[in-house]
Deep mutational scan, measured.
Amino acid sequence: FSITQFVRNLGLEHLMDIFEREQITLRVLVEMGHKELKEIGINAYGHREKLIKGVERLI
């Protein structure tokens, strides 16, 4: 299971460039909250919320 699959499953594949540029893996994403996601350029609250909720389902 990769970050690419995870992001695609959430319908947020347009954010993949950010994850690749910042070298974010699923392991790193698990540790990130709204503040960190915003810092790397994910400005939409809804997108950040989707990512965080998606990660919570993985754990």
Rank of each mutant, 00 (worst) to 15 (best):
G11I: 02
I52Y: 02
L12A: 01
L15N: 00
D17F: 15
R27Q: 12
G41F: 04
I24E: 01
E13K: 07
L12H: 00
H34I: 03
Q23N: 14
L10G: 02
T4A: 14
L37P: 00
L10Y: 03
E49T: 09
R8W: 08
T25N: 08
V7F: 07
V30E: 08
V28M: 15
L15I: 08
F6Y: 05
L12E: 01
L15V: 06
V7E: 00
I3K: 00
L37A: 01
D17I: 13
Q5K: 10
R27F: 09
I52T: 02
G33Y: 03
H34N: 03
I42H: 02
A44P: 07
E49I: 13
L58Y: 13
H34M: 04
T4G: 13
G41Y: 04
E49F: 08
Q23P: 05
L10Q: 04
R27L: 12
L15A: 02
R8F: 10
I59P: 07
Q5R: 09
G11V: 03
Q23C: 10
Q23A: 12
R57G: 08
N43G: 11
L10A: 04
R48F: 06
F6M: 05
I24V: 10
I42K: 04
R21A: 09
K53D: 06
G33W: 03
L51G: 00
K35Y: 08
I42Q: 02
V28H: 15
S2Y: 08
F1T: 10
R8D: 04
D17A: 14
R57I: 11
I18S: 03
M32S: 04
F1I: 13
I52H: 00
F19Y: 02
F19G: 00
E31F: 12
N43E: 14
F6E: 00
K38E: 14
I59C: 14
L15D: 00
E31L: 14
E22I: 06
I52A: 01
E56Q: 15
G41H: 03
E39N: 11
G54R: 04
S2E: 11
I18K: 05
L37V: 02
S2M: 08
T25K: 05
E31T: 15
E49S: 09
I3R: 02
I59N: 10
V55R: 05
L12W: 01
G33K: 09
Q23M: 10
M16P: 01
E56I: 11
V28T: 13
N9F: 11
V30T: 12
I59V: 11
E13G: 12
R27V: 09
